[in-house]
Structure formats: structure tokens, C-alpha cells
């Protein structure tokens, strides 16, 4: 039980770091990248929480979330590829 807790804390701290990058991130793509990474780490957190609480049902949610993560990232990128940048100076940064 102890080892799952340690790994969960490590993953949660990493999510905090990545979220900090999402807030700081100078460009749009930093934020999309941070969102994608948080998605992957959330799957890991789900698997670990499933083991901590002894309820393996969380793994099914993890499988679904992996697929939705890819589709979400691609959809956001497509959207911003089509759309005009609101502020060109910001997009260049």
C-alpha cells in the first residue's frame, strides 16, 4: 500500500509542475502540450488510485481516457490550425 501512495504522490507533484507550465506557458502550444501531458498523467493516477483503494474498475476509465486524450488533443490542434489567430503577435511569441 505504501508504494502505491509514494508513486501517486510523485505523479501528483508532476501534474502540479505541468500545470504550472500550462499557466506560465508563453505560447498556445505550450498549453496544449501541458494539457496532453496532464491527460496521460491522469491515466496513471487513475490506475494508481484503483490499486490504492482496491477497486480495479478505475482501469476501464483509464482505457477510455487514453483514447479521449488523443482525440481531444488532435481536435484542439485542428481547431487552432483552421482559426485565425486572435492576436498575431501573441502567436509568434
Amino acid at each position: 500500500m505504501m508504494m502505491f501512495a509514494v508513486a501517486t504522490i510523485a505523479v501528483l507533484v508532476t501534474i502540479g509542475m505541468v500545470l504550472a507550465r500550462a499557466i506560465l506557458g508563453p505560447s498556445l502550444f505550450d498549453r496544449v502540450l501541458a494539457g496532453n501531458t496532464v491527460g496521460s498523467l491522469a491515466v496513471l493516477t487513475l490506475a494508481l488510485i484503483g490499486f490504492v483503494t482496491g477497486r480495479p474498475e478505475f482501469l476501464d476509465i483509464g482505457i477510455l481516457y487514453t483514447l479521449l486524450n488523443l482525440i481531444g488533443t488532435i481536435a484542439v490542434l485542428r481547431y487552432f490550425k483552421m482559426a485565425e489567430p486572435l492576436n498575431p503577435a501573441q502567436a509568434k511569441d
Binding site: A7, A10, V11, V13, T14, I15, M17, R21, A34, L41
Partner: peptide, 13 residues
């Protein structure tokens, strides 16, 4: 695995 996650997060920053 946890250590590599932390390293990656540090690299992000």
C-alpha cells in the same frame, strides 16, 4: 517511474 515523471516535470519547467 515516479522519479522519471518528476524529471520530466522538472524538464517542462
Amino acid at each position: 517511474g515516479g522519479a522519471f515523471c518528476l524529471i520530466g516535470g522538472l524538464g517542462m519547467l
